[in-house]
């Protein structure tokens, strides 16, 4: 299935090897090693400023890194534009603030990448977009503008938009953090469904219920390092590291 021989053997889709990144003098990511198998669901959590968003943003090169390497499906993410183009076709991202294009209808938002990047004919792209809108349960909003939708609806549109480029990996950067509490569930429901369908997902979130439900692995980061990495069962019931225990008591305590 995989396009490149060297990674298909062990079915690992994402390699992060000794990744280091600095913002000026500030060392944001320190010696990160992470390997994600095809179909795996990874939840990344940790206190704010721990580098978790920066880590997933390195996986589609919204952020550059200074040392180490990130390979997606065998493609090295470096300054090579060809590689970048190839990776961005395979990796889709859902943002905290949705980042829908406010001047375009929902349908145009969804068909943009298929038409411009994958050169799909308009009619096919619209059919596909409608099928994804049905999957996130808002096909009736297709001709509205983002500003006319609620936050939860906008985030579901953003998920559908990400799916429209047929990605092999979905990155979620705190997808529910900007939502009102009553809208979080509708977005998480869609994400659970995606997880059950076998999509490879890497999700930065503090929704621990969601993590327990779908994660294959939970990763805890602090101060730019991966502190702990375990199955959700072990992670929540038997955290090894002191900082993990503190974080969990704070986040689950209230």
């Amino acid at each position: 299935m995989s396009s490149n021989g060297q990674t298909s053997a062990d079915d690992i889709l994402i390699h992060v090897n000794d990744l280091n990144k600095w913002y000026g003098e500030f060392h944001v990511l320190k010696d990160i090693n992470l390997h994600v198998k095809k179909g795996e669901k990874i939840i990344i959590c940790g206190p704010s400023g721990s580098g978790k968003s920066t880590l997933i943003r390195c996986m589609n090169r919204l952020e550059k890194y200074q040392a180490g390497e990130v390979l997606i499906d065998g493609i090295l993410l470096d300054d090579n534009v060809k590689n970048l183009e190839a990776v961005r076709k395979e990796v889709a991202m859902v943002f905290q603030h949705f980042n829908l294009f406010p001047h375009m209808t929902i349908l145009d938002n969804l068909t943009l990448a298929p038409r411009l990047v994958n050169k799909m004919p308009k009619k096919d792209a619209e059919e596909m977009a409608m099928s994804y809108l049905e999957r996130v349960k808002i096909p009736q909003q297709a001709n509205k503008f983002p500003g006319q939708l609620s936050g939860g609806q906008q985030q579901r549109v953003a998920i559908a938009r990400a799916l429209c480029s047929n990605p092999r990996v979905m990155l979620f950067d705190e997808p529910t953090s900007a939502l009102d509490p009553e809208m979080i569930k509708e977005v998480l429901d869609v994400m659970v469904e995606l997880a059950e369908e076998g999509t490879t997902m890497i999700c930065v979130t503090h929704e621990m219920g969601f993590a327990k439900q779908v994660a294959d692995r939970v990763i805890f980061m602090d101060e730019g390092r991966i502190i702990e990495e375990n199955t959700p069962h072990e992670f929540f019931d038997n955290p090894q590291n002191e900082r993990t225990q503190l974080f969990l008591s704070q986040i689950l305590g209230h």
Binding site: N60, F101, L116, V117
Partner: peptide
């Protein structure tokens, strides 16, 4: 224009001119 708009466009693979 918010930075998120550039990022969303980049993440979906649009070129600079697109």
């Amino acid at each position: 224009v918010p930075k998120g708009q550039y990022e969303a466009a980049a993440a979906m693979g649009l070129t600079y001119w697109q």
